[in-house]
Design a protein around this nucleic acid. Structure first.
Lengths: 272, 272
DNA sequence: AAAACTAGGTGCAACTAGCGCAACAGTAGT
DNA sequence: ACTACTGTTGCGCTAGTTGCACCTAGTTTT
């Protein structure tokens, strides 16, 4: 009926919706799982369908059910599979670098990658201060992420312009993100100095400093970002920025980048 | 036809087989992905079917395809979902404890959980020595895992006997695992002293030391294990064992265990 | 360069797996 | 007990998946 009759997606889509729902309640903290009925009406599907799907998913270990509350939550298999991802390797290598930054500055450090126009946080190393929100596995719009500027630093100008004009921002954040020219200047700064400073962030009153991580071909595959409390003077931001840039460079070398500072030649990116 | 006509499992099973195949080539290191045809004949399924399934999986982010080699590998979504698992929280909390052990003894430290009769390694902190194999996401039979004895320490005797008699061991490892009585004695040792020492392990010539991690209810939910080079004297094994036991106890407290010596288990634990 | 080979993708009719309804079975609250 | 739940199951019907054959695109052979 739709437009993809030949792709087996019906069952998978349902399963993914369920998994996303089990994972994604975002900021709620009642992680003790969800019942069949709740999921069903949240998804607008039949109870029976959800019940059977969950049973199948449980059989595969994608979800597991609390034996006493009979509620479902995400299962061990996801963990086992994720550990074999290339991202897992990246996290493994990056972990000591991030921890180094955190211990040096006592600020939260993050490792992020770009997925479409969203920034996915792979790993976070919280500072000693407060119990900070868990960011792993969370995606935020590119424009709103501290690591955003670093992740797109190598994009050609037109693509950046397209992104900025195409994205519609949530309420009253337009001014916070800054204009197109400002963005392009920031990207140039990343390419020349190796780090970016972002002034306005998502919700909390912190600035962000980030730097791109490159693979063996020199392509940006990830970014390190550090949130800095706004109470610091601007000079300190750049001090931290330099450190973050250097850390990202060393991480890149660990990932196979030849440590020769060469001009970034634009690798022709085909499809957006 | 079989016995589960009402559970939607056909598509899911196919997808899981694909994912497992993409994840699970075990010890190969060519992690540059796999092609459609290879997967299809490895699975004994139609090319077209696999092609379409992979496209659907890619659309959901469960797999991703290298744009140049056109090979598939596990995708970012798995990482995002796994980060929201309860296991992710466990790893987050346990990480500093494991790192503490590794830096103290310079031996590999692992965090494992029990899944059925398999021991799944959630996290490994390698020692500084050699590049050690990646164990995260790998399951090994309960009897062969260093953490095995700690994970089943609270099982009642009959259940342990059933397990030992039910399991068939691979070639010539029967003697290595040890007899039933020996196992039961080891479990008693875990309950009284808080750690287990395993002499014979999987492949490498290392002994293992492990200790159970308990949740807020006192139930064993995970285990820490440390592999110890056989060159150490036996006394050192117990020295490390005591440290691992203490670390596991502190981790348990971090997870909400009331740090009170419970009645039946270990009364002789001095206060720190 | 054409032929031969391979890997991956597509169109379509047949068929069966899974949907949805409704009835059923547990469990808790009153 | 009744009432109000949540979760599971039986079964006819339909829509989604299957498998074959064919097709496209890239790579090697002659």
């Amino acid at each position: 009926m739709t437009d993809k009759p030949t792709v087996p997606s019906a069952g998978l889509r349902r399963d993914m919706e369920i998994l996303e729902l089990l994972a994604g309640h975002g900021d709620d903290r009642d992680a003790d799982g969800f019942g069949v009925t709740w999921i069903a009406q949240r998804l607008g599907r039949e109870k029976s369908q959800v019940s059977r799907a969950l049973r199948a998913l449980e059989l595969e270990g994608m979800v597991e059910r609390d034996p006493v509350t009979r509620r479902y939550r995400l299962g061990w298999r996801l963990f086992a599979l994720a550990a074999r991802t290339q991202h897992a390797r990246l996290v493994q290598v990056a972990a000591p670098y991030l921890r180094g930054l955190t211990t040096t500055f006592d600020e939260d450090a993050y490792l992020c990658v770009l997925r479409g126009n969203l920034v996915l946080t792979l790993m976070s190393v919280p500072s000693s201060r407060i119990y900070h929100r868990v960011w792993e596995g969370i995606s935020v719009p590119l424009l709103m992420a501290a690591a955003g500027r670093s992740l797109v630093a190598d994009w050609d100008e037109q693509r950046v312009r397209d992104l900025l004009s195409a994205t519609t921002l949530p309420s009253g954040l337009e001014s916070a993100v800054g204009g197109t020219e400002e963005w392009l200047a920031d990207l140039a700064h990343v390419r020349s100095c190796g780090y970016a400073v972002t002034d306005v962030e998502l919700e909390d009153s912190t600035a962000g400093v980030s730097a791109p991580v490159r693979d063996h071909r020199g392509l940006i595959t990830a970014a390190i970002s550090v949130s800095v409390a706004r109470t610091h003077p601007a000079a300190r931001l750049h001090e931290i920025g330099a450190a973050v840039g250097e850390t990202a460079r060393q991480l890149s070398i660990s990932l196979g980048l030849v440590p020769h500072g060469r001009p970034i030649m634009s690798p022709m990116r085909g499809s957006p």
